[in-house]
Design a protein around this nucleic acid. Structure first.
Lengths: 156, 156
DNA sequence: TTCCGGGTCATACTTTAGGGTGATTTTATC
DNA sequence: GATAAAATCACCCTAAAGTATGACCCGGAA
């Protein structure tokens, strides 16, 4: 992409040079035909113009180069910071705080054993919590609990 | 698109050529009017150099401008309702359509057996799909797969 | 004080999920 | 038509999840 642009730019410069040369020759020809004042002066002026134009181009390209390296790639930040717990649903289902904690960790994809480690309790305790949670939420699997929990806004 | 670019570039060149011709003619005209090449040849040459250098700079900047427009800013606010599958991630992970279907049903909280019934395939097939899916997604549990799938926008 | 709900833990058991291997068939793709 | 990828299915085994039951502790309410 960048190399392509550079190539096209060079191409442009060359094209410009060619057209300039053609123009100058055309001028020269016209000059020779109609007004022949100073022969060597025209060549001198033309070459000066050519050289300094190319110098200007080169200078500008050289100076503008660092300016063009603005490559910005922005990705999403996974918004959803605005989570408010649906306390009514929680109360309606009779889900306790601890059970909600378990549900949250379930949603993160943790196993019962990992949840036990996270909450500093035994595996059996987590199992008890999850069992009661499933009963209260009227589901039979952790995946269902997570899905329903997200739907009822018990978890983000 | 490409033809258009080329045309506009050529247009630029032609425009430049025209302006160059005009400038040269103007110079010629000035020359004829005041006859400056006798005593101030240096001034003449210097002004030519100056004019054409700035012309070159201007030209180069003009041509370099479209290069700066290649900046693509991708901002996502994650509205929620409009789900668009992240095909890049799917391709990057090598997740097939069928595996995505299984993942979707997993996210709904269905068991492997239920997924098998939904897709009219055997339980073993679902297991194979899920196994490959987990391998590709680099997870080890369905809950993790669902969580990561939602995060990478493979599923709503 | 008694009672109850929440939290803790344990044991035993069943079900589901997941890993590994191998095979066949369909479907693109070159 | 050969090749590769996807989809299908089976069997075996282990790990994890889920069910059932019982027990203990603790703090607040009746």
């Amino acid at each position: 992409m960048i190399a392509g642009n550079f190539f096209s730019k060079n191409k442009m410069v060359l094209l410009y040079g060619a057209s300039l040369a053609i123009l100058l020759f055309l001028l020269k020809w016209l000059e020779l035909r109609f007004i022949i004042y100073d022969y060597s002066f025209e060549i001198y002026a033309g070459s000066i113009a050519l050289i300094f134009t190319s110098l200007g181009i080169w200078l500008a390209l050289k100076l503008a180069k660092p300016k063009m390296q603005t490559v910005i790639v922005e990705r999403e930040v996974y918004a959803g910071a605005d989570f408010i717990l649906n306390a009514k649903e929680q109360a309606a289902l009779g889900v306790s705080k601890r059970e909600l904690e378990v549900l949250e960790l379930m949603a993160e994809g943790l196993s019962n054993d990992e949840i036990a480690g996270r909450l500093f309790v035994s595996l059996n305790t987590v199992k008890t919590h999850s069992s009661k949670l499933f009963e209260k939420m009227e589901v039979s699997r952790r995946t269902q609990a997570v899905e329903k929990g997200k739907r009822l806004r018990l978890i983000p």
